[in-house]
Structures are given as structure tokens and as C-alpha cells.
Simulated scan of single mutants.
Amino acid sequence: MSAPTVSDFAAMQQAREAAWLSPLATPSYPARREREEPHSGVRTPFQRDRDRIVHSKAFRRLKHKTQVFVAPEGDHFRTRLTHTLEVTGISRTVARALRLNEDLTEAIGLGHDVGHPPFGHLGEDILDRAGRERFGRGFRHNEHSLRVVSALEGLNLTEPVRDGILRHSSGAGEPATLEGKIVRLVDRIAYINHDIDDALRAGILAVEDLPAEEIAILGPTGPARIDTLVHDLVAHSEAAGDIVQSEEVGRAMYALRSFMFERVYLGPAQREQAERVERVLRGLFDWYCEHPDELPPGEMPERVIDYLAGMTDRFAIRAWTERFVPQGLAR
């Protein structure tokens, strides 16, 4: 028996999708890429995108980038990589339940944060302000994620994956696909709940601090809340033909998000971290602008912004220490 050809594989996948996927799902074929290329004989176009993202340098660096807590000493705090994996896993569950394209959902989930700078959203805010002040242009991690996969890593991803990566953040417009909308909403579901877990572990919050009304609706633990949110999302999205939540559960989730901004993301402990991060990242930004010979080749301002955004937390701290701390004191 001869091995199936590329066209055989594509035809079989298209037949499977026609039989299984919802009419609202994004089909894997035809693949629209910036540069046309032949199909694979063993993977759908979205599977190839997923693999290219996982094999990229930017994806590997996520393991040493902050989620919320900067360079935590404990082994169980989330990093940008574990956040990405949680978002992707939950998103695939939702996509499967709604009979949407799991491969597309997975690729968007894995790629959505590859452009995140070091030190989480503190780092993003600092790069944004520094870029506006010196160059008149800001920084948004979703836009930079698209730049990473397209220009810096040259992954030649499909159009629906690039769209989902760009539009996973608020302010970037609605994703063009339901799969992209899943990742956009699940990103919030994941970070709200795992950031609560990390804040409890760090001692910034106690269980009794959590808002009672929202906890009563969503559940007493992170897994229980995610289960509630996912079931609600699937049930109401299926009925609506769109990615939506019920009014009660959606309101409770966003109230819990507001609580996290007040008590954790913008709270006293984070303000303390912000001062240290500002010193490191702003110091490096100004240094490299004045010493461009230390940067990879290219044009400003992309040259300095690309370099800083690509750093891990520990690389940024080491780079700052080498330039601003007398080495006798650093030993």
C-alpha cells in the first residue's frame, strides 16, 4: 500500500472537517499565508503554525519572563510560558466543545504572548512610555507578538493565526474568527484565576479577602471557577453562535478582575516591584539608545525596542547589573 500524497492528506482532512466541524468553524484549507508555500503531507496548515511557534526562540524565552511576580524564588509561581500553556489548554477545550477548529485555536493560544517583554505588564508600560517619549511611538505586546512571528522569526504563519495573535488584546479590534475570540476571552479567564492562586501563595491575598458575591457565583477555588466559566462560555456561545458569556457570570468575572487590579496588579507590592523594574528597564533603554553599537544591526527605534522586548527577566537584570553596578559590589 502506497503512502498517502500531500493532496490525499489535505482531502482527508477536509472531509473530516466537513463531517465534524461546526459551519461557524474556520476551515484549515485553503491556507492564506504572506508567502505561498506547498502543503504538508502530515499536518494541517494550522498544525504547522503551532509547531513553528513552539520551535521559535521567542517561545522558549517565555519560560524566564514574568507573569505577575518578578523573578520569584518559589518554583510554583506562573511564568509567561505556563500562562501560555494554561490559556492554550483551556481554549482547546472550549473549541472542541463548540466543534470549532482546535488546531487554529491552539496555534493562536501558543503565539499570543511571544512578543511580551520582560517583567510582565510593568515592562510593557515602561517600554511604551519610553518609546513615546524618545521616538514618538508606543509599545503594545500584541502588536509586537505579530512582529515577532512575522518579521523577526519569519514564521510565515497563516492569516487567521496572525489575526488571532494581534487581536487577543482589548483595543486591537475583534478577532476575525471564533477561534480567535475564544483565546481572547480565555486569556482573561486564565490569568484572573491563576494570578489569584499566585497572590495567595505570595501572601498578598488571603482567601477571606476574595469578594464573597463573585466567589459564590464562580466557585471557591481556581479549578472550580475555571470550570464554571468554561461551562457557561460553551453553553451560551453554542446558543448565540458567537463567543459570549452569560450576564451573571460575565459580570462576576469582570468584577473579580477589577478586584485583582485594585489589590494585586496596582497594589502596594506591585508598586514596589514597579520601582525596581523601572530602574532596570528604563536604564537599559536609555543606555542602548546612547550606545547603539551594543545592539544587533537595524534601524531605530525598532533596533532598541526589539532587543529589550526580547530579553528575559534574568537577562535584563544581568545586562543592567553589568552596566550600572560596580563589579566589585556585584561579586
Score class of each variant (00 low, 15 high):
residue 4 P to G: 06
residue 5 T to Q: 03
residue 5 T to L: 08
residue 6 V to R: 00
residue 10 A to L: 01
residue 11 A to M: 05
residue 13 Q to K: 09
residue 13 Q to R: 11
residue 15 A to F: 08
residue 17 E to Q: 13
residue 21 L to N: 10
residue 21 L to Q: 06
residue 22 S to K: 06
residue 26 T to C: 10
residue 27 P to K: 04
residue 33 R to L: 07
residue 34 E to Q: 15
residue 39 H to C: 02
residue 40 S to F: 00
residue 40 S to N: 00
residue 45 P to R: 01
residue 49 D to Q: 12
residue 49 D to T: 07
residue 49 D to Y: 09
residue 57 K to E: 01
residue 61 R to W: 15
residue 63 K to M: 03
residue 64 H to E: 15
residue 66 T to D: 12
residue 68 V to Q: 09
residue 69 F to P: 04
residue 69 F to S: 13
residue 74 G to K: 07
residue 84 T to C: 13
residue 85 L to P: 06
residue 94 V to T: 05
residue 95 A to Q: 02
residue 107 A to K: 06
residue 108 I to S: 02
residue 109 G to L: 00
residue 112 H to R: 14
residue 115 G to N: 14
residue 118 P to R: 13
residue 123 G to L: 10
residue 126 I to L: 07
residue 127 L to G: 01
residue 128 D to Q: 08
residue 130 A to F: 09
residue 132 R to L: 13
residue 138 G to A: 03
residue 139 F to Q: 08
residue 142 N to T: 11
residue 142 N to M: 12
residue 146 L to K: 13
residue 146 L to R: 09
residue 147 R to N: 11
residue 151 A to I: 03
residue 155 L to F: 01
residue 161 V to A: 05
residue 170 S to V: 14
residue 171 G to P: 04
residue 172 A to M: 15
residue 177 T to C: 05
residue 179 E to V: 11
residue 183 V to E: 04
residue 186 V to L: 07
residue 187 D to I: 03
residue 191 Y to M: 07
residue 200 L to A: 13
residue 201 R to H: 12
residue 201 R to G: 06
residue 206 A to E: 01
residue 206 A to I: 01
residue 206 A to Q: 13
residue 208 E to F: 13
residue 213 E to F: 07
residue 214 E to W: 00
residue 218 L to G: 05
residue 219 G to Q: 08
residue 221 T to R: 06
residue 240 A to Q: 09
residue 241 G to C: 01
residue 242 D to Q: 02
residue 243 I to S: 06
residue 245 Q to R: 10
residue 248 E to H: 06
residue 250 G to V: 13
residue 251 R to D: 14
residue 252 A to N: 05
residue 256 L to M: 13
residue 257 R to G: 14
residue 258 S to Q: 15
residue 259 F to D: 09
residue 264 V to A: 08
residue 265 Y to Q: 15
residue 269 A to R: 11
residue 271 R to T: 13
residue 277 V to H: 12
residue 277 V to D: 02
residue 280 V to M: 02
residue 280 V to P: 06
residue 289 C to Y: 07
residue 292 P to A: 14
residue 296 P to G: 04
residue 298 G to V: 01
residue 300 M to N: 08
residue 307 Y to D: 04
residue 307 Y to P: 07
residue 311 M to F: 11
residue 312 T to M: 11
residue 316 A to P: 12
residue 319 A to P: 08
residue 323 R to S: 04
residue 323 R to F: 07
residue 326 P to G: 02
residue 327 Q to S: 14
